[in-house]
Each structure stands twice: as structure tokens, then as C-alpha cells.
Computed example of a mutant assay.
Amino acid sequence: MNLKLQTEQLRQHLQQLKNNYEENDPPEDRRDKEFFLMVKSQTEPIYQMLDHWEEEALAMVQERKVSLHPHQVTSTKENMGLLLMHSYYIDVKRKRYMELNHSVNFIFDQLINDLHDG
């Protein structure tokens, strides 16, 4: 799957996660095994996609096909990972969540624009 398509799919997941964060309450028991297993089953494919995306994006950065720096790609992967957990456990303030969300969206947009122009 090409990098542009992967990035667009991750951006869709990002929007779904934001909706989840805004529409749900935190779990009553953060140690609830059933809840943990549900979160794991829903997030595992996104984590795998994110790992693959990071590899592809770093390769594009190295080939100078996009105007991002390696640390921006790595930070975006880390921030998306944080958003994956915060979206289910609802354990950060809205302002922090939105900062992370905006940061990830910014890099995704930049990458898509670079790939479109290139």
C-alpha cells in the first residue's frame, strides 16, 4: 500500500479516535480486563499500520521525496500512539488531547501535500 493511502487511512482513524474521545466517558475501572482486551483488539491493527507507515515515511524522508525531518515522523508515530490510548481511557485534558491531535494532523497533511506535489 502506498504511503499517501496509508496516511489518509491513518487520518481517518485519527478522526474516529477524536470522536471516541469526545463522545465517551472514561472507563469505570481502568484495570477492567474486558475493557483492556476490547481496546487492544481495536487498536492493534492501527498500531501495525502506524509501524509500517513510519518505515515508509522515514524511507521517503531519507530519499528527500518529502520535506519532513526524521524526528517529525517518529514524533508523529509516538503522538498517534498516545492518542490511541487517550481516546479510550479518556485520561488527559481536552486541551492536551487536541494539541496532540492537531500535531499529528499537521504532519499527515504535510506528507499528503508533499506526495501530491511530488
Rank of each mutant, 00 (worst) to 15 (best):
K93Q: 14
Q9F: 03
L82C: 05
Y88F: 15
N113W: 10
N20F: 03
E28L: 12
I90R: 03
K93A: 10
R31I: 00
N19E: 11
M80R: 00
R31P: 01
V104S: 09
L111M: 06
Q42I: 00
R30C: 11
D117T: 12
L68C: 08
L58S: 14
Q15D: 03
V104M: 03
Y89H: 05
H116P: 00
V61E: 08
I107G: 02
A59V: 10
H116M: 00
S103D: 06
H102Y: 10
P27T: 01
R11M: 07
E54M: 15
R11S: 12
H13D: 14
S87T: 01
Q110C: 12
Q42H: 08
K33T: 13
G81Q: 05
E54S: 10
Q15N: 05
E34N: 08
R31F: 15
I112H: 11
D29Y: 12
G81Y: 04
Q12L: 09
K4N: 10
E34L: 07
Y97R: 02
N24E: 07
T43M: 05
E63H: 09
T43W: 00
S41P: 01
F36K: 12
M80P: 02
N2T: 06
R11W: 01
L17T: 00
N79C: 09
H52W: 00
Y89G: 09
I107F: 02
N24P: 04
V66M: 06
L5Q: 10
M38P: 01
G118V: 07
V73E: 09
Y97F: 14
L3T: 11
I112S: 04
L50P: 11
M1N: 10
Q12S: 08
R94Q: 13
K95N: 08
M60A: 15
L17P: 04
L10H: 07
L82N: 14
K95C: 01
Q15Y: 00
T7S: 09
D109G: 03
P27N: 06
L3H: 13
T7L: 09
Y21L: 04
M80N: 01
H116N: 10
I46W: 05
S87C: 03
M80Q: 05
H13T: 08
Y21T: 06
E63F: 05
W53Y: 13
I107M: 06
M60P: 00
D109W: 00
D109Q: 07
Q6L: 08
W53N: 07
Q6N: 08
D114Q: 04
K18G: 10
T43F: 03
T7N: 02
Q6I: 11
F35R: 04
Q15E: 13
A57M: 05
K95S: 01
D109K: 04
L37Y: 11
T74P: 00
K40H: 09
H69I: 14
Y47S: 15
F36L: 15
M1H: 10
M80T: 01
Q6R: 09
M1D: 09
F35T: 07
M85K: 01
E34D: 06
D25P: 08
M80K: 04
L5H: 03
R64H: 12
N105Q: 06
H69L: 14
I112Q: 01
H116G: 05
L111K: 02
K93N: 13
E54D: 03
Y21M: 05
